[in-house]
Design a binder for these strands. Structure first.
Lengths: 226, 226
DNA sequence: TTGTTATTTCTGTTATAACATAAATTACAT
DNA sequence: ATGTAATTTATGTTATAACAGAAATAACAA
């Protein structure tokens, strides 16, 4: 899961060599996103070092990166623990996601190649037809991110990509916790294909509006959960 | 500069105690933002340790944070160096800033207290009347950030605040390099007060549009520079 | 002079161990 | 039994030193 997952942007262009810090990051993040390390759990440096098979120095590095990712929180001089997805944090995550993705929609409305559109439609179609009963919430979340991540990629703007990645990590963390009660079978189908229609229209404002509606649908659904 | 500067969000709520990593971060970031460490300059771990008076471990921590801030870039297994503000990076920074601040404008249009408006107007007025000849570009950039940062604060959304902070750090880095040729005396006055007018109108779309225009003015001016 | 090889230096990385502080536990007195 | 003090344990932090690989320099041959 750690190497073939597009979520992990860790330096993986290397020649198979993994730094010790990367090893620790991969293991710990995998445990968190799989729900093994539950929110609020304390992540002791020494325990994590023992678990991952490296020393405390690379563990500190890994925990720092995880904190930047929003998966871990730290009180200085006290310790690190798995982030608890509170209502407030989820709302904040959506505020940022809306900001990023609306901007992405505007940029792409300004100029998206037909080649890019083709690629996106190939992702959108199966995504809009997912059998919700057969997939876990986490899997669906990752599939969703795949589409939006590719969309953001096509802006060529890495700063937007990095910001979006964080919101997705947090979203997956929330889904991994498991107390999700929303009924996703009621979600609109064909949303992503319609979204693409609006983007290729070339009208920035229309594209933005469609994206905002798309995100708000997910937002409203989650607000009922928490 | 390190403790009274609102740009530095490092854990400064502590009881005067500074961790070694924080010491290193403060010193190195100050040198970078002051232009002493020029873009492209290699920041050797050992040299930085000697300079800051701490060991290499906290220096690594500081460099990691500086990389997250966008002030430093690293090639794994090779080293860290001061970020060079290329045209592409500046454009990307503006894309992110526009995304963040337009969202801020929308949120505040939805509900900003009169107390908050009062505070913002007290910052906006002198900002709109700055004597450009008497201030350095860096000082003006910091003053500017003070307004926009406070604006973002009032959304209560720390994720937007963190994202905005990065764009501002990069902007200041760019200004610190010094080859800025734009004539800022031609910039519109009263822009920030007018911006507040649009936000308090309560119309999200109007607020967003005004913010976008505000940022684009700065954007267009800088594009001529680079 | 120029191209090649060997050596030296420098670098990022990380394991080990020490230090100081906070938490938890025990010991003890009331 | 309960509150307090002493002690032990655990933890974050960081200095030191070692390891491996890259870069630069020196030595040497053509």
């Amino acid at each position: 899961m750690s190497t073939d997952n597009p979520l992990f942007s860790g330096n993986e262009e290397n020649t198979g060599f993994k730094t010790a810090g990367q090893v620790a990051y991969d293991i710990i993040s995998e445990k968190i996103l799989a729900g093994v390390f539950e929110p609020g759990m304390k992540l002791s440096r020494r325990k994590m070092a023992e678990l991952t098979g490296v020393s405390v120095i690379p563990v500190i590095d890994a925990l720092n990166r995880l904190e930047e990712d929003g998966l871990v929180e730290s009180k200085p001089q006290w310790g690190s623990f798995v982030t608890t997805p509170t209502r407030k944090k989820i709302i904040e995550m959506y505020m940022l996601r809306e900001a990023i993705e609306c901007q992405v929609a505007r940029i792409l409305a300004d100029g998206m190649t037909s080649e890019q559109e083709k690629i996106l439609r190939e992702i959108a179609k199966p995504l809009d037809n997912i059998k919700f009963a057969k997939e876990t919430h986490v899997d669906i979340a990752k599939y969703h991110y795949q589409f939006h991540s590719r969309l953001t990629d096509f802006t060529g703007c890495s700063t937007l990509q990095n910001a979006l990645r964080k919101t997705s990590l947090f979203y997956i963390l929330y889904k991994a916790v498991g107390h999700t009660r929303a009924d996703y079978t009621q979600e609109s189908r064909y949303w992503h294909e319609l979204l693409l229609d609006e983007i290729v229209s070339g009208d920035k404002d229309r594209a933005e509006q469609a994206m905002r509606a798309h995100i708000n649908e997910s937002y409203e659904a989650i607000l009922k959960d928490i």
